[in-house]
Design a binder for these strands. Sequence first.
RNA 1: GCGCCCGUAGCUCAGCUGGAUAGAGCACCUGCCUCCUAAGCAGGGGGUCGCAGGUUCGAGUCCUGCCGGGCGCACCA
Length: 583
Amino acid sequence: MKSSIADLLRQAIDGLPDLDDAPEFASLSTTVERARDPRHGDFASNVAMRLAKAAGRKPRELAAEIIERLPASELVAKVEIAGPGFINFHLGPAAFHREVEAILEQGADYGRGERRDTPRVLLEFVSANPTGPLHVGHGRHAAYGATLGNLLEAAGYPVAREYYVNDAGRQMDILGVSVWLRVLEREGIAIPFPQAGYRGAYIRDIAAAVDAAALAKVTADDVSSGLPADGPDGDKEAHIGALIDRAAELLGEDGFLALRQQALESILDDIRDDLAEFGVVFDRWYSERSLTDEGRIDAALEVLKKRRMLYTKDGATWFRATDFGDEKDRVVVRENGKRTYFASDIAYHYDKRQRGYDHLLDVLGADHHGYVARVRAGLEAMGYAGDDLEVQLVQFVTLYRGGEKMQMSTRSGEFVTLRQLREEVGNDAARFFYVMRSNDQHLDFDLELAKSRSNDNPVYYIQYAHARVASVFRQLAERELEFDAKAGIAALDRAVEPQEKALMSTLSRYPEIIELAASNRAPQHLVHYLRDLANEFHSYYNAHTFIVDDDALRNARLALVTATRHVIGSGLAILGVSAPDSM
RNA sequence: GCGCCCGUAGCUCAGCUGGAUAGAGCACCUGCCUCCUAAGCAGGGGGUCGCAGGUUCGAGUCCUGCCGGGCGCACCA
C-alpha cells in the first residue's frame, strides 16, 4: 500500500525538469509515511520539503507541482498540501478493501516481503558456552535471535541460523575436571572442590551417568598431592591448571578426552532440548574444535600471513588490527604456541563468508562489544567488506519477582535457568517478554507480571483477541450460519464505522511493520503493532455486533474479523507465541 | 583514562532513520455484562524528552561538550 503511494510520487517527480540531480531520492518510500493524525489523511510525504532546496523552489510551490503531476489512481481519493509543504494522501475506501481481500487470499503469507536470493544471511545467536545449562540471559538471546530470524525470513531474506559451540580450550578442561572430581566424590574419594571449577548441581548429574569403575582407581593423594594452593589464598588458576594436568596424567589423554566429551554431549543435549522446547531451532551447530581439526585456523592465519597482516613480537604472533581501526593489535598465536580464541573467531567468520553467506549477523551479549572491532578487522584484513559483519548487542536481563529484584550468582550456582523460567511463566509469555523491549535496553523481567492471567499481561491481551475471533466463528456455527468470504469482500463498503475504518487501516500496516521490524532488527515494533491491532479489534468487538441478521453486513464484518485473525496469527507466529482458539 | 549502550509521564518502556499538537501499558479515578468470552470496552488526570550549546524551514531523533547509570578495555573463552 505504502509502496503504491511511493510509486505515484516517483512518477510525478521523475517528470520534474529541474530535479535531475537528486539521486538520493531514488528510494522515495523513505519520504512516505503513515499520517499520525487522521486529519492529515492516510499517508504523508515530506518529499517536497526535502527537494525544495535542491530545486531552488519553495516547498509548497513544489508540492503543488508534484500534485499536479501525480498520475490518477483509484486508490487515492484526495491529495492536498498542508503545513510547511507536506503532501497528504487521503485514500479511498477501495484501497483498504483491496487490502482486506489480499489478507483473506494470502492468509499467513500476507505481509511477507518479496523473496530474494541475496544477501544470504547467517544469523548466529545464543552460542552459550557448553559448560552448563542456559540461564535467563541466554533466554533473551534465544528469543531475540529466533524472532529476528523469523522476521528476516518474513521480509524475504534467506536466513541460516547457527550456534557456535565453544567446545575447545581451557573451559572444556575445567568442565572435565569438575565432572571427574564429582565422580570421585561419589566413589568416596573426597577432594576439596577447586574454586575455579563448575560447581552447579548439573555437574553431579553428569557424574552420576559416568561409568566410574575405570576412573576410580586412584587415591585422594594421587589427585591432590603437590598441587599449588587453591584460592583465595593461593592461585586458583594455577591450582585448576595443575588439576587438569593431573587428570590427563591419571586418566590418560584419551581417558580425559572421553570424559570431557561425555560432559560436553550431555550439556549440549540439554541445551538443544531446552531451546527446542522454547521454539528455537538451529540449522547448524558449529563446533569450534572442528576449526582446528579441519585446519581452518591454520588456513585463515595463512591468508593473513600472505597478506602481510601478521608479525612476531615477544614470541607471539600478532595481527595488525590497528590497520583496520581496532585500538590495538591482537595476538593470534601465543608465546606457548597455542592459538587464541580470537584466532578461532577469525577463522570461523572467514569460514562463514567462504560458505557463501554475504551477511554475517551476530547476536552477542553487551559485554562482547569490545570484540566487534577486531573481528571486523579480521574480515577486512582477509579482503572482505567490514560491513559484511553486523553485530546486534543484547543487554542484560534483571529478574524481578513482584517488584523485588532477584539476585543471581553463577558462582554459587544460584542462577535461574531458562528452563525454570519457562516452566514458571510458560513459553509464550517468556518469548513475548524477552522481545518486548529493544535489545539495546536493559530488560527488567518480572516473573509475577509474566505469569499474571490478568489484563496487566500484554501476551494474553493479544492472544485473547485471536481467541475471541475463533469464538465468534463457533457462535456462527452454532447459529447454523456460514461465513461467505466473497460476499463479505463485496460488501466491504458497508463497513463504515470508525472502528472498522481504524481496523482496516491498521491491518494494512502489517507489511510495513514486517519490513520495519526486520530492517531495524527490532522485534518490539511487531509487539507494539500487535498490541495496537488487538486493541482495535477489542474496541470493535465491544462497539458492534458481528453476527447480525443482515447477510451482507455480517459477511463484511466477518471478513474484517477473519483478516484480523490472519494477521494476529501470523504476527504471533513470528514472535514464536501460540495463537490459541480459546482461552 | 579510552570505547560501546542507555537517560522520554509516579513505574516499565515505544517513538517508524529529521516532520505537523511526544505515545502505550501499569498504577490512580469514573462508567459499561439480559447482548458473539469483562483475560474486554469507553472516558479522565499526569511531560523542562538528563543539562547546555550547535546544525535545520523544522530536533526526543543529527553534531559537540558536560552530568548520571550499565558494560567492556588479556598471550581467558
